[in-house]
Structures are given as structure tokens and as C-alpha cells.
């Protein structure tokens, strides 16, 4: 630190607690029960996951529910070369994927489990893997395996 240019270190730390609202609550609790819920507007085919309670396109309540099978298509993937604070998986390259679940029109971001990330391709079929111990939340999903 140069005397002429002082730097002041400071940390900002604020805890938050987010209310999910009815649609996300149903989704997160569904994950605990090993179920994957999507929502849409009655009479429209579009389904979103994670579900919305209100469709911003048709400006109607999205209370038409569907349970998804847990298979899907890899829309994209990204490989993190370093460990991450949120995911302390030592020695393993972390692969994130955007998965368009069968029956849904939006993507879910999650981990992709593969030993060979170099062989992944956009369009690869994947299947959701549940964790054995689940509480309501996205961590109830362990990630996706290649089919």
C-alpha cells in the first residue's frame, strides 16, 4: 500500500430471506418430494420451470400445472476450471448446464455430471438425478446425468 494511495478494506454483510410465493413454493416443496412441477396458463401450451404464478406474455394467472418426467435436452453447458465456494468439490471440474426439460419451454440451470466434459454437445439428452436426502430447495436435485 503506497502512502499516497490509501485503500480501505471493508466487508458488507447483510442476510436476506426470500419468500418464494405460491408457485415457487410448490416447486421447491415438490423437489423435496421428488417431483418436478411446471406451470402455465390454462389453454396455452407454454410451460415454465421454475414455475411462474403469472404469465408475463399473456398477462394471465399461470395456474395450470404439469409434472415433468425429469428428462431433457442440454441447451448449453459451461465448464468451471476452478473450485467454487458454493460447491466445494475438490479436484473435479464443475460443469453447469442449461437444460430444457421435456414438457417445459424454459430452461433450468444446474450441474451436469460427466467425467468427460470435452465430449458434451448442445442437444445431448440428460436425466435429472435426485439427492437421497432432500429438503425443499434446488439442492434436492444433485444435477443431471447424460442419457
Amino acid at each position: 500500500m503506497s502512502e499516497s494511495h490509501w485503500i480501505v478494506k471493508q466487508k458488507i454483510e447483510i442476510p436476506f430471506h426470500y419468500t418464494p410465493g405460491p408457485a415457487l413454493l410448490r416447486f421447491l416443496e415438490g423437489l423435496r418430494d421428488g417431483k418436478l412441477f411446471a406451470s402455465g396458463v390454462r389453454g396455452e401450451s407454454r410451460k415454465t420451470v421454475p414455475p411462474l404464478s403469472f404469465c408475463g406474455r399473456s398477462w394471465k394467472p399461470a395456474d395450470d400445472w404439469a409434472e415433468l418426467p425429469g428428462t431433457g435436452t442440454l441447451e448449453s453447458f459451461a465448464v468451471v476450471p476452478h473450485g467454487m465456494a458454493e460447491l466445494p468439490q475438490e479436484g473435479e471440474r464443475i460443469v453447469f448446464g442449461l437444460v430444457k426439460l421435456d414438457g417445459a419451454d424454459t430452461c433450468l440451470a444446474h450441474l451436469i455430471h460427466t467425467k468427460e466434459p470435452g465430449k458434451l454437445k448442445v442437444g445431448t439428452k440428460v436425466r435429472l438425478r435426485w439427492r437421497a436426502e432432500r429438503s425443499p430447495g434446488i439442492q434436492a436435485i444433485a444435477g443431471f446425468d447424460l442419457l
Binding site: 436476506f16 426470500y18 421447491l28 421454475p50 460447491l87 433450468l108 440451470a109 450441474l111 434446488i138
Partner: peptide
């Protein structure tokens, strides 16, 4: 999204 994305570290 704080519900399904931040916990993953995106």
C-alpha cells in the same frame, strides 16, 4: 434468481 440459481453459485 435467489431461489434456484444463487445456491448453485452462478
Amino acid at each position: 434468481d435467489p431461489y434456484v440459481e444463487r445456491p448453485l453459485g452462478l
